[in-house]
Design a protein around this nucleic acid. Structure first.
Length: 937
RNA sequence: GCCUCGGUGGCGGAACUGGUAGACGCGCUGGAUUCAAAAUCCAGUUCUUUCGGGAGUGUGGGUUCGAUUCCCACCCGAGGUACCA
C-alpha cells in the first residue's frame, strides 16, 4: 500500500469531527492545559501559508499535552467584526454579515485540511449577537465602575456615589478627568440628576468626553494611535487629521502601573514586554508650579529632573496650551498668533518630519522661579506636545540637548550647574556622579540626593510635588463604523444611560447604506429602527423619538479590539446564555497556559485585553488578573514578491538583467506566474491583468526574468501563497512538518517550497518501515539493542525539543531516526509504535492511520506519550572530571569495562603529563598536541 | 537617537549550561537500479592545499588549556519607539 495522504487525511478529519475527539470537558480529574491561538480575522483573501505557522505550533503543544495526560482546551474562533467587510459592503452593497459568513466557511475548510485538533464546539465569532451581547455587557460593567486609587482596584460606581453622599469628593481617591471640580456632601445632594451624571462620567471606566481625535476623512472614522502608521491610516494609507469630538473612552490609564507591574509575572518574550513598557512610558519626576509674573495663574510643568531646577533659564509651552492666549503680551501677540496658525496648519506628519528644525516664539510673559525668584521668559514651541505631561516644560539648557539647541538658536542664557563639566559644546544629560553647583541648597549634591532634597523642598513650600507621569493615554472607544458592536447606550437629556442587561444583545440594525449620513453622522444614523423605548424596553423606529419616553441610541460602534479583549474567557464556557462565562468554568480553566500569536499586537490587543482582564478581575468576575501565563510570538512568513520593470513613460518591460542604466518603475506581478528560475510566463501575464495586454516584453536570452524581493505577504503585493495547493500536492501533514522545519518558530522567514520534498520524502520513508513493496512488514520480533537505542534517543530529543518549542530540530530528529531504522532494517512493532505516538503531534493523520492499522481501537491522540529510558542509551561509560594545574577542567568519558592505565589527551601545545585526576582510576593522563581527545589504553 | 533581537557553507538552518563547528533538509556531483524516465537506494559535498596540512561562525580586541557560545569596541540587518520634558 502506498502512502496515500489524500485518502488518509480526508478519512481522519471526518473521524475526528464525528467522534468529537478534541472536545474538552470543563470537569476532569486530569490536570488542565489551555492552549490558545490569536483568532483570525476572516478576510476575503482566505488563509495564506503564514497563518498556520502559529496554529501548527500550538497544535503540536496541544496534542503533546493530550498525550501527556492533560485535559487540553484548544479552541478556535473568528474576530469577525472589521473594516474590510464593511468596505466591501460599501462597494457592493452586500451585507457584511454575509461576506463574513462566506469567508468563515472558506477559512474553516482550509483549517480543517491541516488536521488541527481544535474543539470546534466552543467556536466564537465576535460578530455573533450571542457573543457581542456579552461584549456589550462588559461595556456596561466598566461604565458602572470607577478606579479606587487608594485600594488600587476598580470598584462599583455605587461605592463612589455612597462616598459622595457622605463626604463629597474631597476624601475620595479615584482616577478621574483632570477638570473634575471639588464638592462636598451638601453640594452633591443639591446637584440635579444631570449634574450628578456629568460628574460621575468623569470617574467611570467607560466615559464620554470631548477629545481631540485622529480623524480620517477618507474612511470617515476615528483611528486609534496604533491604527496610524507614519501619519497615515494603516488601512488604505489615507491622511489623518486632528478633530475635536465627543467620544467614548476607556480609562486604561488608571491601570497603567498595574499593567506595567503585571509584566513581571508573565512569561512573555522580553522584546514584547519592553514594547509594552515603552508604550506605557512611566516617568518618575516632579510636578512644579511656577507663579506667572503679573498674572494670578500658576504654570504647572512636569519634569524628570527636578534636581536641575536652578539651571532653568526659560520655559516652553505647547502652542495649544490654554494659558498662551491670556499671557501673551500685546507686542508679541501678532508673532505668537502667526506661529500658532503656522503650527496648526501642519499635520502631525509634517510636525514630525523636520525634527531637527528649531522653531518657537517668545510670548512676552515671564514666570517666577520658585526659589531664586528670577523672572523666566516664557516661549512657545512646537516640540512641546500638548498631549504629554502638562504641555509645558521648564527648559534646562545645560542638562538637556534639545533645550540647549533651542537656547543657542534664540540666544537664551545657559547656566551651568554641573561641577567640572564643560558645556560649551553640548548639554550634559547624564545622571552620573557629578556634583551640582550654582544650585543654592542643592550645591555639592549628586543626582539621587538632589532629587530627594528638591522634592522635599517643593512639597514643604507648596511649590510642587513628586509625581509620576505616564505616556499611556486613555483608549478611545467610539468608531464611526457599521460593522462593529453597537454601544448599549441611549441618550436622555444628552446624557448616556445604559440599556438594561436583560435587554441585551442590542443587535446591529439594518441600514440601507453603510456610509456616514449626509450630515456626517456615523452609518448607524441611516438606521430606521434605532431609538429606545424606555418604558417598553425595546428598540423602536427613529421617527418616534420624543425625548420623553423614546430616546436616541448611540450611533457609534465599538472598536475592533473590543471583541478580542475577552474572547479567551468566552472559550471556557462558549455556550453559556446566562453569563459571559460561568464561575465554575473560570475556576477550572483560570488562565491561558500557552498563547501564541504575532508581535504586531503588542501595543494593541495584548494591552487592551490585559486591561479588561484586570478590570473584570477587580469586579470579581474572573480569578486571575493576568490571563496569559506564557506567550510566544511566532514569526511572519514572508512572501517572495516578483517584479517586472516598466521603462518610465512607456509600455516596455525590461527583463531584470537589462534594467541597468534605465529609469524603470518596478511593478508587482503575481508570483504564480513565475517559475522557480524567475522566468515569467508572458502569455499568462497578458491575460492576468488588462494593463499587460499590449505590453512589450524585452527579453534576455529569450526569457523574461523578474526581480525578487522578500516582503510581508499581502494580497496587494500578489505574493500570497495559498496552503491549499500544498495540501493538494503533498498533504496537510507534510505542510505541518515543513512549516515547522523551516526554522525557529519565533523567526521571520521567507516562504520557499524548495525544501518541501525532503519532508515529504521523510513521511514516505517512514511509511516504508510499515509497508515495503506494498507488503505489511511490521513484526513482533524482539527489537535489537541498536534500534531501541535509536528510539530512545529520539524520544529524548523530541521531548526536550517540544518542551523548549524547538520544533525544527524535532523534525530533524525524526529524519535521523527513520534513516537509522531504515539502515538497521528495523520493522519491529515495539520500536515503531512509540515513534508513531511521538510523531503524531506533527503528522496526525499519518500517525492515526498507521496506529489503527497496528490494531488499536482508540484514537492515537489519547495514547500516552512514550517515556525516555536512559538505560537504553547506556554507553557503559563513566564521566571523570579532570583538573589540570589546578585550573584546567573538562570531562573525560571512559568506557566502564576497560581498565585504563594511561590516557593521552590532546589539549595543549606541548606534551604534558596530567597532574591530578579526580575520581579514581585511570591514574595517568598524557596531554599531547593534536586532536582534542585521543585516548590510548 | 534610544530599546529589543539577530549576523554560521551555494541556500534554510543545527550546535540547549564554553569542549571534535556545519546536525537535518534543499541544491549540486558521482554511482546503483531501469530499454528509458519517475520513484528508490548508496557515496561525496565549508574553503583552500604542493594532500603533510592551513584557514574558518560580521570586524577588531580581551578572558580561557579551549570561544559560534562569555566580556569590550565597532560594522551590518530586522522589529519597536521618539522633539516624552
Amino acid at each position: 500500500m502506498e502512502y496515500n495522504f489524500q485518502e488518509i487525511e480526508k478519512k481522519w478529519q471526518a473521524f475526528w469531527a464525528s467522534h468529537q475527539v478534541f472536545k474538552a470537558d470543563n470537569q476532569s480529574k486530569k490536570p488542565k492545559f489551555y492552549v490558545l491561538d490569536m483568532f483570525p480575522y476572516p478576510s476575503g483573501a482566505g488563509l495564506h501559508v503564514g497563518h498556520p505557522l502559529g496554529y501548527i505550533a500550538s497544535d503540536i503543544v496541544a496534542r503533546y499535552k493530550r498525550h501527556n495526560g492533560f485535559n487540553v482546551l484548544h479552541p478556535q474562533g473568528y474576530d469577525s467584526f472589521g473594516l474590510p467587510a464593511e468596505q466591501y459592503a460599501i462597494q457592493t452593497g452586500q451585507h457584511p454579515a454575509k461576506t463574513t459568513e462566506t469567508n468563515i466557511k472558506r477559512y474553516r475548510e482550509q483549517l480543517d485540511r491541516m488536521g488541527f485538533s481544535f474543539d470546534w464546539s466552543r467556536e466564537v465569532r465576535t460578530s455573533d449577537p450571542e457573543y457581542y451581547r456579552w461584549t456589550q455587557w462588559i461595556f456596561i460593567q466598566l461604565f458602572n465602575a470607577y478606579y479606587n486609587t487608594r485600594k488600587n482596584k476598580a470598584e462599583s460606581i455605587s461605592e463612589l456615589i455612597a462616598a459622595f453622599e457622605r463626604d463629597g469628593n474631597s476624601k475620595v481617591s479615584a482616577h478621574s478627568d483632570s477638570d473634575t471640580p471639588s464638592f462636598d456632601a451638601v453640594q452633591w445632594h443639591a446637584f440635579s440628576e444631570v449634574e450628578k451624571q456629568k460628574i460621575l462620567l468623569k470617574y467611570r471606566l467607560t466615559y464620554l468626553s470631548e477629545t481631540q481625535v485622529n480623524w480620517c476623512p477618507e474612511l470617515g472614522t476615528v483611528l486609534a494611535n496604533d491604527e496610524i502608521i507614519n501619519g497615515v491610516s494603516e488601512r488604505g494609507g489615507y491622511p489623518v487629521t486632528k478633530k475635536r469630538m465627543r467620544q467614548w473612552s476607556m480609562r486604561i490609564s488608571a491601570f497603567a502601573n498595574r499593567l506595567l507591574e503585571g509584566l513581571n509575572q508573565v512569561d512573555w518574550p522580553e522584546s514584547l514586554k519592553e514594547m509594552q513598557r515603552n508604550w506605557i512610558g512611566k516617568s518618575i519626576g516632579a510636578s512644579i508650579f511656577f507663579q506667572l509674573k503679573e498674572h494670578e495663574e500658576k504654570l504647572e510643568v512636569f519634569t524628570t529632573r527636578p534636581d536641575t531646577i536652578f539651571g532653568v533659564t526659560y520655559m516652553t509651552l505647547a502652542p495649544e496650551h490654554e494659558l498662551v492666549q491670556s499671557i501673551t503680551t500685546p507686542e508679541q501677540r501678532k508673532e505668537v498668533e502667526d506661529y500658532i496658525v503656522e503650527v496648526a496648519g501642519k499635520s502631525d506628519r509634517d510636525r514630525q518630519a523636520d525634527v531637527k528644525k528649531i522653531s518657537g516664539v517668545f510670548t512676552g510673559a515671564y514666570a517666577i522661579h520658585p526659589f531664586t525668584k528670577a523672572a523666566i521668559p516664557i516661549w512657545i514651541g512646537e516640540y512641546v506636545l500638548a498631549g504629554y505631561g502638562t504641555g509645558a516644560v521648564m527648559a534646562v539648557p545645560c542638562g538637556d540637548q534639545r533645550d540647549y539647541d533651542f537656547a543657542n538658536h534664540f540666544d537664551l542664557p545657559i547656566i551651568n550647574i554641573f561641577n567640572g563639566i564643560d558645556i560649551s559644546e553640548a548639554a550634559f544629560a547624564d545622571k552620573g556622579q557629578v556634583k551640582l553647583i550654582n544650585s543654592s541648597f542643592l550645591n555639592d549634591l549628586e543626582y539621587s540626593e538632589a532629587i530627594q532634597k528638591i522634592i522635599a523642598e517643593l512639597e514643604e513650600n507648596n511649590f510642587g510635588r513628586g509625581a509620576v507621569n505616564f505616556r499611556l493615554r486613555d483608549a478611545i472607544f467610539s468608531r464611526q463604523r457599521y460593522w462593529g458592536e453597537p454601544i448599549p447606550i441611549y441618550f436622555k437629556s444628552d446624557l448616556p444611560y445604559t440599556i438594561d442587561e436583560k435587554n441585551l444583545p442590542l443587535t446591529l440594525p439594518e441600514v440601507e447604506k453603510y456610509l456616514p449620513t449626509s450630515d456626517g453622522k456615523p452609518p448607524l444614523g441611516n438606521a430606521k429602527d434605532w431609538a429606545w423605548d424606555e418604558a417598553n424596553e425595546k428598540v423602536v423606529p427613529v421617527d418616534q423619538i420624543d425625548h420623553k419616553t423614546i430616546f436616541p441610541i448611540e450611533l457609534n460602534t465599538m472598536p475592533g479590539w473590543a471583541g478580542s479583549s475577552w474572547y479567551f474567557n468566552r472559550y471556557m464556557d462558549a455556550k453559556n446564555t446566562d453569563r459571559f462565562v460561568s464561575d465554575e468554568a473560570v475556576e477550572y480553566w483560570k488562565a491561558v497556559d500557552f498563547y501564541i500569536g504575532g508581535s504586531e499586537h503588542a501595543t494593541g490587543h495584548l494591552l487592551y485585553s490585559r486591561f479588561w482582564q484586570k478590570a473584570l478581575f477587580d469586579l470579581g468576575y474572573l480569578k486571575v488578573d493576568e490571563y496569559a501565563k506564557k506567550l510566544v510570538n511566532q514569526g511572519m512568513i514572508l512572501g517572495n514578491s516578483a517584479f517586472v520593470y516598466r521603462k518610465k513613460g512607456t509600455q516596455d518591460f525590461l527583463s531584470k538583467g537589462l534594467v541597468n542604466g534605465h529609469q524603470v518603475e518596478p511593478i508587482h506581478v503575481d508570483v504564480s506566474l513565475v517559475n522557480s528560475s524567475n522566468e515569467l510566463d508572458i502569455d499568462k501575464v497578458r491575460t492576468w491583468q488588462k494593463d499587460f495586454e499590449k505590453a512589450k516584453f524585452i527579453l534576455e536570452d529569450g526569457k523574461y526574468i523578474v526581480g525578487r524581493e522578500v516582503e510581508k505577504m499581502s494580497k496587494s503585493k500578489y505574493n500570497v501563497v495559498n496552503p491549499d495547493l500544498i495540501c493538494d500536492t503533498y498533504g496537510g501533514d507534510t505542510l505541518r512538518m515543513y512549516e515547522m522545519f523551516l526554522g525557529p518558530i519565533e523567526q521571520d522567514k521567507p516562504w520557499n517550497t524548495a525544501g518541501i520534498s525532503g519532508v515529504h520524502n521523510f513521511l514516505k520513508k517512514f511509511w516504508r518501515l510499515f509497508y515495503k513493496n506494498d507488503q505489511w512488514v511490521v513484526n513482533d520480533q524482539v527489537s535489537s539493542a541498536e534500534s531501541l537505542k535509536v528510539m530512545h534517543q529520539t524520544i529524548k530529543k523530541v521531548t526536550e525539543d517540544i518542551e523548549r518549542l524547538s520544533f525544527n530540530t524535532c523534525v530533524s530528529s525524526f529524519m535521523i531516526c527513520v534513516n537509522e531504522l531504515t539502515g538497521l532494517k528495523c520493522h519491529n512493532r515495539a520500536v515503531l509504535e512509540p515513534l508513531l505516538i511521538l510523531l503524531s503531534p506533527f503528522a496526525p493523520h499519518f500517525s492515526e492511520e498507521l496506529w489503527m492499522q497496528l490494531g488499536h481501537s482508540q484514537s492515537i491522540s489519547i495514547a500516552p506519550f512514550p517515556k525516555f529510558d536512559p538505560s537504553k542509551l547506556e554507553e557503559k561509560t563513566k564521566e571523570y572530571p579532570v583538573s589540570f594545574n589546578g585550573k584546567m577542567r573538562f570531562t573525560l568519558k571512559l568506557s566502564l569495562d576497560l581498565s585504563v592505565d594511561e590516557i593521552k589527551v590532546a589539549v595543549m601545545k606541548e606534551e604534558k603529563t596530567i597532574a591530578q585526576l579526580n575520581g579514581g582510576s585511570p591514574k595517568k593522563i598524557i596531554v599531547v598536541p593534536g586532536k582534542i581527545i585521543n585516548i590510548v589504553i
